[in-house]
Amino acid sequence: MLNAFRTDTKLSSRETLVLNVLPFILFFAAYFVLTYVVHWLALPEANQAVQWLSAQGIDSPNPRLLPLPSDIWQSFLSSLKPDSAGHVQLTEDVCATLRRFTIGLSISTLFAIPLGLFTLFPKWREFWVPILGWFDKVQALLLWPILLLFLGLDEAPKIAIVIVGVLPGIALEIARLVELVKKDQIYKAQTLGATEMEVVWHVVYRQIFPLIIAAIAATFKAAWGYVIAAEMSVASCGIGYRIFLAKRLMDMPTILAYVIVAMLIMFAADLLFGWWRRSYRWANQ
């Protein structure tokens, strides 16, 4: 503890593990203690304690705001139970949100990659980079009403908001990566008989591909956020919709269960793309 502020600290793998896990244990322990105390205060036998607290000017908190871990687990399980029509609420919500997220991000990537790569050509660069720079500064959520007016209330605006939100950013990041490719390599490729398009493919795209993966992964959080925000506004299923609904019913266990599921999905996506990027071992140098 005393030597926490030292740059030359050497850690054994066990110490590393302890340090990594400790914050989780502390966080969950604090949550457990807090929730159990709050729930105990709601019981009749805690009457004295409540009175003593209010004498100190402290209102006892509403136990519904701090659900017990077991309640969260229960609501997670109940959202996995098929209803009378055989629909599983959690799966349907997650699938709906993931579908909007994936389609939006795929379309963005599909257009952003050629757009970014072609900035290798000065005319493309001068034409696209400034306008993309401006669009990148537009907060996509502010365009949500416009998207609704133009695209209706269905799936289209929820996918469109992801595209509007992340496409310029991915294209600009790729344009930046293209600039970092050494000119000498391009000339070298031309002496080897490469045409312009072959330079784009062989010298630029193939070499920056792992970094493009990283650029896409960097937009996950924003894209995920746009979908959820859109679902909170207009939807009939989805993680955002369900949380919004649960808030009205003050169904805190469901909210927290969905927050945890949404967090785990992002965590898995990051992990997956991290593995994918690192699988190009030549790019890690």
Binding site: D184, Q185, Y187, Q190, T191, V203, R206
Partner: peptide, 19 residues
């Protein structure tokens, strides 16, 4: 007028294709 097959190039910082 442009880079062609006439020349072979070994640039100053050897730029092999890293991939």
């Amino acid at each position: 007028t442009r880079v062609t097959r006439d020349c072979g190039l070994v640039p100053q910082n050897y730029s092999l294709f890293t991939n």
